[in-house]
């Protein structure tokens, strides 16, 4: 699936998006896999309460299932307007 990062999450991880091969069942499982990869991921995902997640471009929760999902995005709370 395609994983996207925005704002300071993008800066900490160092790329705006990447293709990830995963069998993760939920967003939380995917976060655990990413954290285990490298320090930059561990730093970005240190506190998921400071993050928001969208699955296939819809805001959701970290316990959302990933079956059939094409795109997951991680970002800080939004500051539009």
């Amino acid at each position: 699936m395609n994983v996207l990062y925005f704002a300071w999450v993008r800066e900490r991880i160092g790329v705006p998006s990447e293709s990830v091969e995963t069998q993760a069942a939920t967003v939380n499982d995917l976060v655990e896999e990413l954290r285990a990869r490298e320090d930059r991921y561990a730093a970005a995902f240190a506190d998921t309460s400071a993050l928001r997640v969208a699955v296939d471009q819809e805001l959701t929760d970290f316990d959302a299932p990933l079956a059939g999902v094409k795109e997951v995005a991680f970002f800080p709370p939004m500051t539009g307007g």
Partner: peptide
């Protein structure tokens, strides 16, 4: 303000911050 995916970053002479 808090449900549309926009993120603001302020740039000053001292640097930039989200």
């Amino acid at each position: 303000k808090s449900r549309a995916p926009f993120w603001k970053r302020e740039v000053t002479a001292e640097g930039a911050s989200w």
